Simulated assay, not measured.
Amino acid sequence: MNHELFSDDTPLPIGDGALLLRGFALGVDDALLEAVDAVSAEAPARRLCTPGGHRMSVETTSCGRWGWVSDAAGYRYAECDPVSGRAWPAMPEPLRRIAVAAAARAGHAHFDPDTCLINRYAPGARMGLHQDRNEHDFSQPIVSVSLGLPIVFQFGGLQRSDRPQRVPLAHGDVLVWGGPTRLAFHGVLTLKAGIHPLTGASRINLTFRRAR
């Protein structure tokens, strides 16, 4: 791993076990977006339905051994893309590298993600407060990479009623959380209209987890 590719700024704590790495993905952002395009060409992003029947505002796809899916049967990981019936695309190496490097920078030296959820936000899209709890091993952290338009991340507590703090995220920022805050409620506010030179009128979020 060539760590010179990544920012060496001091991580900014936003909670117990939660760190913000400002600009950590800058310098490899082109490679990350090329990898996202390759995955999307094989497994196009789509707006999933929640178990309650509501269509999500973000477009979603996955890569790695497991893909995150949602439908009337619930939230879960699946080995095959339910649209094509084929296995999800393998995780491109640039994606795996940024996830492992960010986790190590945040103190999780042995993170080995087996899934990457790719969310594409258009203006007006948002993600309500939720917990990531479909994984089998909560000792593994979550790594979240922001690309494209800026957005405001909400990071709450272990109860939905806990008031979340608001953390502005810019292109290239990476969040890592685990340990005491692994099950913290989190989400993003509505994406505002704008144009980014690399992603146009959109934001792309990469979320890496160890599902199994």
Rank of each mutant, 00 (worst) to 15 (best):
F185M: 04
L175P: 13
Q165R: 15
T181S: 15
P94D: 09
L183P: 08
P94E: 09
A122D: 06
G187H: 07
L147K: 11
Q165F: 07
V152C: 05
R126S: 09
P94C: 10
S146P: 11
L149V: 08
L191W: 04
N134F: 00
L158M: 09
T115E: 08
V167N: 09
G107V: 10
R160V: 06
Q159C: 08
L175G: 14
L129H: 04
L149D: 10
Y121E: 10
H171G: 02
I151C: 13
P168Q: 09
I98Y: 10
R133A: 13
Q165C: 14
D162A: 15
A109V: 10
H110D: 15
V100A: 12
G124M: 00
F155Q: 03
R163C: 01
D137K: 10
P141T: 00
L129Q: 06
D173G: 08
R160H: 14
A103Y: 08
P94Q: 09
V100N: 07
I142S: 01
G194Q: 02
V176F: 14
G128H: 00
F111I: 05
L129R: 03
S144M: 02
R182F: 10
H196K: 03
G128W: 00
I98F: 11
L129W: 03
G178I: 12
A101E: 11
L189E: 15
I142N: 01
R120T: 09
R133I: 08
G128T: 02
L158K: 13
R97W: 07
P150V: 13
T181M: 13
C116L: 08
L117R: 00
H186L: 02
G187F: 07
H110P: 03
A103P: 14
G128N: 01
D137N: 13
L117M: 06
H171A: 01
A170T: 10
A103M: 08
A102K: 05
G148N: 06
F138A: 13
P123W: 03
L175M: 15
P150H: 11
L189D: 15
V188F: 14
Q154S: 10
A170M: 13
V145D: 04
V145S: 02
H171K: 00
R133T: 11
L149Y: 05
Q131H: 05
Q154V: 01
D137M: 04
A184P: 10
R120I: 02
R120M: 01
L117I: 09
Q131K: 05
G187M: 07
K192W: 01
R97D: 14
N119G: 10
I195S: 00
L117N: 00
D162H: 15
A99Y: 15
H186S: 02
A101R: 06
A109P: 06
L183N: 11
R163S: 06
D112K: 05
D173V: 09
R163L: 08
L189M: 12
D112W: 02
A104E: 13
